[in-house]
Nucleic acid binder design. Structure first.
Lengths: 187, 187
DNA sequence: CTGGTTTTTTGACAATTGTCAAAGGGCTTC
DNA sequence: GAAGCCCTTTGACAATTGTCAAAAAACCAG
């Protein structure tokens, strides 16, 4: 739990009360590789902080598996649209490794938001951080070539390349597995 | 200003005090087509609500003009990464039509966040809304063909097609002007 | 160590999109 | 109404990436 609060402390210095209130509703989970954290076409009720391990957010587009997002140690995982809108979403989340994470339920988080201004602030900053990350990834996809996108990934998250199967990396980058294999072959 | 608060009211019902405090720092601007709202490679200090008109957020990638975002009536415009991180960003914002907008300065907004819990909540919900929109656009770009993306735009923002030059629509969709012209020729 | 499964690479070819160049169209201004 | 400008379309060709199929390599379990 210290790791969680260390991460959160990078956004806001929470008061003792807020921190305790949040600690009381955090749920630790230790789950095996392959476990389905969020089912596809369902509502995502938790936001997860990953202490150790690796998660993959994915969906099917025209029958093909698409990797939407990857989250490892000290990152957050969540089916964002579903969590925020409380609606079904095609995105599911599965574990690519045995994973230790902390879950925070939507309803509990809403209560915290109402009672504690500093937690509402934390929420705003977390969403802002997510928006910045997505915007950067969007820019990459918008007008960079496949090879450039692969390079960006090597620079920002080199460990993914070791830990995630090639086909999943490829769809994360918006290309096919064959194209990625060829990019790698050319160094 | 009523329009602004009507829009904001869709996210949070602000208290009278919060509303008044916000109203006192909102700045109305009426600017001509072609005006540069935010310079490229600068820090964006304002978030803008558009009462009437049309703005374009853009940058240059390898010497080519890329349209990042378009905002019309009742939407918000802002160079998001710059506004949130307080750092320079290559994105600039220009007006594609004579435009009436309301600007809220970053420093004033920060003060409002600190003093009023409900405005902090509004900020969280606005950023969440932005994140959802960007995620949907990202999904579209991720594995939809150029023709599908054009269709999505026709469904979500048909007026853009009338009001924005083809080349800007094309780069917004992540394709060249020629490709878009050919997609249109095939109906 | 071995057989079987999964993952990655390679090949041949097709489809999509980009590039460069030129030609039309429409609008404004003098 | 002619000249000039901006926006859009079209053509020919090149580059990039996708598709389908099969081979090679890596990984795992018994």
């Amino acid at each position: 739990m210290e790791k969680f609060f260390a991460r959160v402390g990078q956004f806001v210095q929470l008061s003792k009360e807020s921190r305790d209130a949040m600690a009381s509703v955090l749920r630790k989970m230790e789950l095996p590789k392959g476990h389905v954290l969020v089912k596809q076409d369902s509502v995502c009720h938790y936001i997860y902080y990953i202490e150790q391990g690796l998660t993959r957010t994915f969906y099917y587009k025209d029958g093909k598996d698409v990797t939407d997002w990857l989250s490892a140690e000290d990152m957050f995982a969540c089916s964002i649209i579903s969590f925020l809108t409380r609606q079904l979403d095609r995105r599911g989340i599965e574990l690519l490794e045995n994973t230790t994470l902390w879950g925070l339920h939507y309803d509990e988080l809403e209560k915290l938001y109402k009672h504690y201004h500093d937690i509402e602030r934390l929420g705003r900053l977390l969403v802002s951080f997510g928006l910045i990350q997505l915007q950067q990834r969007f820019d990459d996809l918008h007008f960079a070539t496949a090879a450039q996108r692969y390079r960006t990934l090597m620079d920002t998250n080199p460990s993914f390349i070791q830990r995630v199967p090639l086909g999943m990396i490829a769809s994360y980058l918006g290309i096919t597995q064959e194209t990625l294999s060829r990019i790698r072959a050319q160094h």
